[in-house]
Simulated assay, not measured.
Amino acid sequence: MARRWVLRVVSLAAGLLLWQVLTASGVRLWLRFDQLPTAVEVAERFARQLTRAEFYGDLGSSLARIGLGFLLAAVVGTALGVVVARSRVLGDLVQPLLEVVRPIPAIALVPIAILLFPTDEQGIVFITFVAAFFPILVSTRHAVRALPTTWEDALRTMGGSRRQVLVRVVLPGALPGVFGGLSVGMGVAWICVISAEMISGRYGVGYRTWQAYTVVDYPGVVVGMVTIGLLGRVTAGVVELLGRRATRWLPGEARS
Rank of each mutant, 00 (worst) to 15 (best):
A79V: 12
T38W: 00
S87C: 08
V75A: 09
A39I: 01
G220E: 04
D92Y: 13
Q211D: 10
V83R: 03
R145V: 01
G229M: 15
V76Q: 09
D217E: 01
R65K: 13
F70V: 15
V100I: 13
L59S: 12
V82Q: 08
V226N: 12
V222Y: 07
V6R: 14
V188H: 10
L93I: 13
T150K: 12
P172T: 06
V130E: 02
R3W: 13
I107V: 10
L230F: 14
E253W: 07
I136H: 00
A254H: 14
V9L: 13
V9K: 09
M186R: 10
G187K: 11
A79M: 15
A64P: 01
E99R: 13
F133G: 01
S139C: 10
G69R: 07
L31P: 03
L63H: 08
G26L: 07
L93P: 05
V169P: 11
A47E: 04
Y218Q: 15
L18K: 01
G220D: 04
L68P: 01
L171V: 12
H142D: 13
R162D: 15
S62F: 12
V125A: 09
M198D: 00
C192V: 00
G15I: 12
L31N: 08
V42G: 03
V226W: 02
Y218V: 11
P251N: 08
I199R: 13
V10C: 14
A14W: 00
A14K: 01
V6F: 09
A24C: 06
A43G: 05
V40L: 10
R141M: 14
R45G: 01
T140R: 08
A108S: 11
Y203I: 03
V42K: 02
E54A: 14
E121W: 15
A113I: 05
G243Y: 02
V239R: 00
G224H: 10
G123Y: 06
L242Y: 05
R244I: 00
Q35C: 05
V239K: 12
I136Y: 05
V125K: 00
G180R: 07
F129Y: 12
G69K: 05
V193G: 08
R245H: 08
G177T: 05
V84R: 12
L242M: 04
L63E: 09
L22S: 03
F133I: 04
T119W: 13
E121V: 12
A212W: 09
E44M: 03
L250E: 00
M186C: 12
A154H: 01
V226Y: 14
S183F: 15
L22A: 05
A106T: 08
T214R: 15
M198A: 06
V234W: 06
T78I: 02
P105Y: 09
L115C: 06
R8A: 13
L90G: 11
T23K: 01
E197H: 12
I107P: 01
E121P: 01
L93T: 13
L68C: 05
L7W: 11
L16T: 02
I112K: 10
V178A: 09
R156I: 01
W19F: 09
L17M: 10
V42P: 03
I124G: 02
